[in-house]
Write a protein that binds this DNA or RNA. Structure first.
Lengths: 185, 185, 185, 185
DNA sequence: TGGTAATCGAGACGGTACGTCCTGTCTTACT
DNA sequence: AGTAAGACAGGACGTACCGTCTCGATTACCA
């Protein structure tokens, strides 16, 4: 039952959007009574948070190719792949819509974005150990510089986002990392 | 009347958020009847779009200090200043909430981001003419690289965003611009 | 203009009924602006009252055939003819709907029903003078007895009302008039 | 709940009339939410029809005194008693207001008038069996002749209606019934 | 003939009610 | 004990009219 409801929630989310999602709609789609949902989740928000969390729970693999550039490229491309699906877009708009006000959504956002970066940090530390990056490189910072333009294009400008975008992000991030060691421009 | 409604909409937006905004609520706050709003705007969305547009209508000044770095710094800092107010944050999340589905919001988003960048392009072209940046630098691309990490922090990670963030963005953008002329890392 | 509005009101009355009649609807149909109606009539009720009064203003002829039975028959048949038209029915339901509460409608009712009887009284008094009816016959009473079953069928039972109904009403009224002179049954 | 709503509807009907009755008003008075009314009744009309039906549900007793005159007198007087209360008058005008257009009201009218007459027919048939009335007397016809002047005065002329009116109606009805056996006047 | 007044169309406004959809709580009955 | 079913109070939706108002534009009349 729980699974059916969560899946129905994801479907509604992708089809009608977060704003138009209703508990009754999810219940109908899941073939379940409204009260059943209210028994298991506090809100529509709680339900959506759970649905998103369980749907995106599958860990993304942390690449280890031996070279920082290909590692970063793999990371960036997997990010692009995740977020250009219909569901990925739904996730984005949902989480951006009102996460500030809805604690459960903020948690999901944290889990899906911040944690993802933290888990990828070894990619950077390994590169530092290999001497590919300056010793004082901040892994979190570099990864944000990597992700930022991708998310920016996804969310703000309507531009198409593809592997080329990912690769360009890698170049920018590496350039910035190397530049950090140089005197300010 | 129109002004009162738009202002009330902005207030509701900052206080209760986009999802919880109701036409009746705005009408109450503006001291206006619901039907008056429906006479002038098709939707709650249309109203919100108008409110956002009018709120951000004040043109940001395009700096021209004679040096690309200080120009970019001025741009980045003014962006940070705009978006770190309570209202700025609220409006930012509103615009992002479901612009995919709501054409009027998409228009506002376009006006708010794309147009803003276009108006700032002279900053980059002047720098190219002065020889501060490689001749093949893409102005739009550089400006996106500048804005991306700021918006990214504002929207995704809960980190504080301040002038230091702005300055760091300038460094990254310039590093990336110069690196474009070099062979790929 | 006045004429166009009154005519439009009658049309609306017959087509959509008194309850569903709106000032705006009448204005639309009359090709006139709403305010014009409000300038000339206090209410929808006032408008309807005027419309009915002017439409039914045409006096019914008072017959004088020389014999009470044919006089009454003419009266009854003209009543049937008036009230079985589409407009006549509209008049009936309008006037019955809420005349108690709406003074202007009560006036119209008075004008259209009571006065009509008063004008017909000579028919009875002439019959009394001719010796066709007992000297103590109450003209108003007799005419009400004549009209009552016709209106009753029109308004209460859905039965068809035609000339036969009119003639039957004449028989009953005359029987009652003659019986008045006899000892109570 | 149902009872509270129906009672509230009757009260609104007597106080403000059919035209001015609103679903929200009834809901307010009944201490019930608007949607509850819409769940149980299709329309304001349906609600009113139900309210009227339940209010007049109390069967009028069919008299059997052994003599036609006193039987008819009892019938006529009970009719007068029912319809001269404030509520009775209000409900009468409601039923007549627009029954042509509103099927539910037509049903109620049918139940209120036709059925009531049908139930009273034994009064007449017994009188025929006793030889008090001609064998070919049409019971329905006689009862209509009895009721017509009472309703006529109630609805059209503003005259007071009392027991004397009832008794006069009895005399007229009996005179007409006897006259039927005689050659036409 | 030119100004004044009346009359009109046009449409905005605050307001009431419409009938619908959804919320979140509750009770009942099944299983 | 958990569920389907569904009633309920409540809030908001977007629409149709209400009756009032202000604003020109058009007449028409009179000075």
């Amino acid at each position: 039952m729980r699974a059916a409801v969560l899946e129905a929630a994801i479907t509604e989310l992708t089809q009608t959007g977060y704003a138009a999602l209703t508990v009754e709609g999810v219940a109908r789609r899941a073939g379940v009574h409204k009260t059943t949902i209210y028994r298991n989740w506090k809100d529509a928000d709680g339900l959506v948070a759970d649905a998103l969390a369980s749907h995106f729970a599958a860990d993304i693999p942390i690449p280890d190719t031996g070279a920082v550039e290909s590692d970063l490229r793999a990371l960036a491309r997997s990010l692009v792949a995740t977020m250009t699906t219909r569901t990925g877009r739904a996730l984005l708009t949902t989480v951006l819509s009102d996460a500030v006000r809805i604690p459960r959504l903020a948690e999901v956002k944290h889990a899906l974005f911040d944690d993802r970066f933290r888990r990828a940090e070894p990619v950077v530390t390994r590169a530092i150990e290999r001497g590919e990056l300056p010793a004082d490189t901040d892994p979190a910072e570099l990864l944000k510089t990597l992700a930022a333009p991708i998310y920016f294009r996804l969310v703000f400008t309507g531009e198409s986002v593809d592997e080329a975008t990912a690769d360009r992000a890698v170049r920018v991030a590496l350039a910035a990392a190397h530049a950090r060691a140089l005197p300010a421009v």
